[in-house]
Amino acid sequence: MTDETADGPGYAIAEDGSFTAPLTLAYPYARTVGPTYGTFLTGLAAGKVHATVSADGTVFVPPAEFHASTGEALTQWVEVASEGEVVSWSWESAPGNAQPFDRPFAWVLVCLDGAGTSMLHALDVTDPSEVRTGMRVRVRWAADAEPGIGAITCFEPVTTGGAS
């Protein structure tokens, strides 16, 4: 219960005599990802974004295993761009421990070019005035990420007239 790794005794005594101590409740879960997400995540590790396509032509990013309306199993794949448009966003003013940045940033729903759905990720901006619906953003790839969505570090704004 107490933190024995700390330099001190691992607890403190408040002015009113109450004992206080850090208490971390954590579970080191791991899970298998299955063929659909496995293909998506394998693509991300190679710097590519793969999407599933339904018979009606809808391109799903992240890939869906089944079409939400028809129940069709989705087994056709297509590669989409790593650049797209912000569909919606939310400002994160108080990031927690395991979040992409340790300072305020934006959560964005991005519709990648060629995709018919949008995906959630972080956008590297430091002020809400730097993000707006419709702005162009691109993937910033992580150099040595472990398998997972962390292969994308975040999205970053595409500056107009830039080199992209």
Binding site: G17, T24, Y29, A30, T32, T42, K48, W77
Partner: peptide, 27 residues
């Protein structure tokens, strides 16, 4: 699909919360 990287079959998804726990006056 690309086979440059090893196929991803499994991911780590650790979760946790850090509490500052107080025993209260009586305990």
């Amino acid at each position: 699909m690309s086979n440059e990287a090893e196929d991803v079959l499994r991911i780590r998804t650790p979760i946790g919360v850090d509490y500052a726990w107080s025993a209260g006056r009586r305990s």
